[in-house]
Design a protein around this nucleic acid. Structure first.
Lengths: 230, 230
DNA sequence: CGTGATCTTGAGGGAATTCAATGTCGGTGG
DNA sequence: CCACCGACATTGAATTCCCTCAAGATCACG
């Protein structure tokens, strides 16, 4: 079982998520309010499934506390994590009747669910809400495009550096508390766990980061990391 | 200069784009109609820029004829193509005031532009249109997620096979007319031009495909390709 | 035909993976 | 409290796959 203190990562930043957050940009307040009004909060244990691919996409989700990963599996066991979601982030915004991906709690988490039909009905009346949903989805798309460049054209070290900077941005701290394991990071970056480990070691040796503990990383040379991030 | 006959690829499929098309799923008609009513069609020569990163995102675009690539460049020249758009596809749906990516015509193309402000105003009155825009963006997101799995967890041959199947689906033929060069394909798949070429050769040797000409590929063993596609 | 661009093929090298062993941390029971 | 245990992470050696560099082949077009 994972340490419980990771559950609260970023929750204190709910009110002022920086621009790099995947969703919930300028219209964050509106969506947060809508979810608070229409949604039901549910707890999920670490590694619990929130929804599975090919299940009916009846809900849209917002992370309240903890962290969520959205991933795809191939029959032979290969796994790709498409995104991590932190408090304040929306997910499950897929088009169509069914989810295309699996969503799981990374650590013990709290997630707010809103019925898609309810949300769409509300959006039909409230154009600002409709636009906020579009904007949130477009934000997810932007993240995905960033991810594509990462996977397509960057070296292992660049990927890890980019990941650390992104996490730092999203939690608005230089001292990152990682909710996810090395395996999760590897599956997000399209690498193996060993390669991630080696990249982190190299960054530590270059004094770009400190690793006070496995799940805690301090960005001690942000400029150096950004040089890698290109 | 590229052969001009590629301009018309897929245009005859405008009215019945299959489900795998990145945008414009069930609500295709509505968006096509809206674009026809509100938009202005513009011609672009092969390799002409349609919009650039950091330019104000004043328009939303729909391919009428030809093909468009959306890509990102790093300072050192690395290029990642995030998506190809074919007739009927929407692009430029980014959130925020500015585009994040570059869009260029792959071949001589015709693209319909609609002012974003006009579209948003129309969407504010017409909830079906608003939802169609959301759905189109979510469709783009779905494509991006597929792309992420491709780049993160698939071998070179699997990537090429997956690309061919995708193109075949989108143009609804077994005989693909590729509008893009090997370099474009490589930059889409996160590979080098040589690796793409070798993968195609291997697929041809395995009788999965025929290559009657450089820009023409016949899927002679779809099942074999799908096995690779996982 | 000749020319330049595009594509294919080959040989060699390098970055990441695989396989294997060691190290470290957190939780549990003696 | 400390030793043990399993899960997670790091490190090392060997392999593999893809990239780089280089040469040839093919295609489009004048």
């Amino acid at each position: 079982m994972r340490p419980q203190n990771f559950e609260t990562i970023g929750s204190r930043h709910l009110a002022h998520i920086p621009g790099e957050a995947p969703h919930d940009g300028e219209s964050g307040g509106l969506l947060a309010t809508a979810f608070a009004a229409m949604g039901v909060a549910m707890p999920f244990k670490a590694d619990a499934r929130i929804f599975g691919a090919d299940e009916p996409a009846d809900y849209v989700y917002m992370v309240v506390r903890g962290a969520v990963r959205v991933c795809e599996l191939l029959e032979d066991g290969r796994r790709q994590i498409n995104a991590f979601y932190l408090p304040g982030d929306l997910f499950g915004l897929e088009a169509g009747k069914c989810h295309q991906l699996n969503a799981e709690a990374v650590v013990s988490s709290r997630v707010r669910l809103v019925r898609r039909s309810v949300l769409e009905a509300a959006a039909a009346c409230d154009c600002a809400l409709a636009q906020a949903l579009w904007t949130a989805t477009a934000g997810s798309l932007r993240q995905a495009h960033h991810h594509i460049m990462l996977l397509g054209r960057k070296s292992a070290t660049e990927r890890v550096a980019s990941f650390l900077l992104q996490m730092s941005m999203r939690t608005a701290t230089d001292m990152i508390e990682l909710p996810m394991s090395r395996q999760d990071i590897a599956d997000y970056l399209g690498l193996t766990i060993e390669t991630v480990s080696r990249a982190l070691t190299r960054l530590r040796q270059n004094s770009a980061i400190l690793i006070p503990s496995n799940r805690r990383i301090v960005l001690s040379n942000r400029a150096g990391l950004q040089r890698l991030d290109s």
